[in-house]
Design a binder for these strands. Structure first.
Lengths: 154, 154
DNA sequence: GCCATGTAGTTGCGCGCGCAACTAGATGGC
DNA sequence: GCCATCTAGTTGCGCGCGCAACTACATGGC
């Protein structure tokens, strides 16, 4: 028997559901495309590469283990290996063996990397504000924060 | 002169801004990864391929021009060419010349494609509800919809 | 001490996509 | 009618990433 008053969990999305879901896809695609283009054009970096510099900049001594970088950047270890390869070519990062663990390697921010980070960070923050935060009153920013917390907490 | 009461647009993000922005990145990455894995495992399709079937299913006569598909799916025309190639191999889609425009081509949903769409749609809707909508009361879904509208309208 | 198992990082391979160049056909100025 | 320009679609190439296999080292049971 059909039970139209008890919609199936695989039935069509209603307009509220659609707006919440599709809107996120649209906004994410658009904003990240713009930020990626800005970062590439202004600094020759991808956003992922920038984020790695950012994580290193926040870390004590400007260095982190490869696996920690990978998990923070939401990449696999193999992806991080290649990403750091490119940052090493740019002289923004150096590798260092981990003393006390012969398997481990650190990625270390160089002075040139720290300089690049400082400049790129301004581009990135301005882009996030211009393309995203500026269009949202603080009340809506707070509402988004709450929603994300609900989605992410298991 | 520093003007701490007038924060620079490239200064650090405050906690509210950070939660709104980073949360979206996290939620988007996580939910799309899960939906992609479900779609691949259950039906051997990527979400992009599924969406093309969906657009065709909604179109009159189950057919659309390549360029229209590309813009709806947020892909380039070249990406759509290859994506449709794969759907043709799967026998879910056929190509047809556009009469009256010798350049044009339609992608047409086959009966097998319509069947695949029906089944895959259930997987996808269930995934969206399970991983995203279920964790948001309707008030928050409405708040998200409003926020997306603000970000997207120029 | 020795071996089974686990972990860190790298490498070979393939996929999905964008960019730029290209072909074929449409369109407008004259 | 003719040619410059535009548009639709495809193709060659490269990039960024994940998966699985591999190497090297660490760790715990005995």
């Amino acid at each position: 028997m059909a039970r139209p008053d008890q919609p199936a969990d695989d039935g069509p999305l209603d307009p509220t559901e659609l707006a919440a879901w599709r809107g996120m896809l649209r906004v994410h695609a658009r904003v990240t495309a713009i930020l990626d283009a800005q970062m590439r054009e202004a600094h020759g970096l991808t956003v992922s590469q920038y984020e790695v510099l950012l994580f290193l900049g926040d870390a004590p001594d400007g260095q982190m283990r490869m696996a920690d970088l990978a998990s923070r950047a939401l990449l696999t270890r193999s992806g991080m290996t290649r990403l750091v390869d490119r940052l090493v070519e740019l002289r923004y990062v150096e590798r260092a063996a981990a003393e006390g663990d012969g398997r481990g390697a650190f990625a270390c921010l160089t002075p040139a990397g720290a300089d690049a980070l400082r400049v790129a960070q301004r581009t990135h923050r301005r882009g996030i504000r211009e393309e995203f935060l500026r269009k949202l009153p603080q009340s809506e920013q707070l509402a988004l924060g709450n929603a994300w917390e609900h989605v992410l907490r298991d």
